[in-house]
């Protein structure tokens, strides 16, 4: 079953043609990695999937994106509803200046959930799925800023999971973290794909090969190659992909 289905997506920042005719499909409960040199459009494409680019003035998109069969760019789509289905974890940990508990509860509260016992239950579940529960269960009332960078990032993942999304987008989630925290995040991604479809943007090719089932290689706004991860890293079809993964540029 296809969770994400992008067809002929073109994207412009004012005059700059950032994405050129991208078509790509993601199956349910798979991890897909987007790789490519800086400015290749992989993050832009990721942000198309939850319409985060809508926030930037002067952008324009053509083509269509279907998530679970629904066109997310159709005029009657409510963006806030879409983003409940498609969660996002950002490059830098960005917890709110609130307590750990309130950070997780935020997504539930803005969705109009008032039942406190349900919120408490979801907070615990999400923290457990983000492998953070044991570390923070005694300090849920403490500020989220008291956590380390890696813990903050797992908190942000837990926050995204709390509203039970179908797809989780991760924009270089480990690039600001130390190797141990990175390893934890990668382990977590592996666990999470049982329940979620995950799309991860990364600069780190080892990471892509470790965590993903499929890998998409972007270059200069084009999708050069998209295939099983093992194939991309052992037997790429395009020369550009070969050059990038062997570190000749990028």
């Amino acid at each position: 079953m296809l969770t994400v289905e992008a067809k002929n997506v073109d994207f412009y920042y004012s005059d700059f043609h950032a994405l050129k005719n991208i078509s790509l499909e993601v199956e349910k409960n798979k991890v897909v990695a987007f790789i490519g040199p800086s400015g290749c459009g992989k993050s832009t494409f990721l942000r198309i999937l939850n319409r985060m680019n809508d926030l930037i003035d002067g952008t324009r998109m053509t083509g269509s994106v279907l998530i679970e069969g629904e066109d997310i760019y159709a005029p009657n789509v409510r963006v806030d509803e879409l983003r409940k289905k498609v969660g996002m974890v950002f490059q830098k940990p960005n917890p709110f200046p609130k307590t750990i508990f309130e950070n997780i509860a935020y997504g539930l509260r803005v969705n109009g959930i008032k039942d406190n016992s349900f919120i408490e239950q979801r907070v615990e579940e999400s923290l457990k799925s983000a492998a953070l529960w044991d570390e923070v269960k005694d300090k849920l009332k403490k500020s989220a800023f008291a956590l380390s960078g890696g813990q903050q990032q797992r908190l942000c993942i837990a926050r995204a999971l709390a509203i039970s999304p179908k797809v989780v987008l991760m924009d270089e989630p480990a690039s600001a973290l130390d190797p141990i925290s990175t390893a934890k995040i990668e382990e977590l991604i592996y666990e999470l794909k049982k329940d979620y479809t995950i799309i991860i943007v990364t600069h780190n090719m080892q990471q892509a090969s470790r965590v993903s089932d499929k890998t998409a290689y972007f270059y200069l706004g084009e999708l050069i190659e998209y295939d099983d991860t093992t194939k991309i890293f052992t037997n790429p079809q395009k020369e550009s992909t070969q050059n990038y993964i062997t570190g000749r540029f990028g």
Binding site: N50, R83, K84, K92, G107
Partner: peptide, 14 residues
């Protein structure tokens, strides 16, 4: 910070 706003919007807040 833009990150705060985006975090909120990404969680489905209006």
């Amino acid at each position: 910070p833009r990150a705060m706003k985006e975090a909120s919007l990404a969680l489905g807040a209006t």
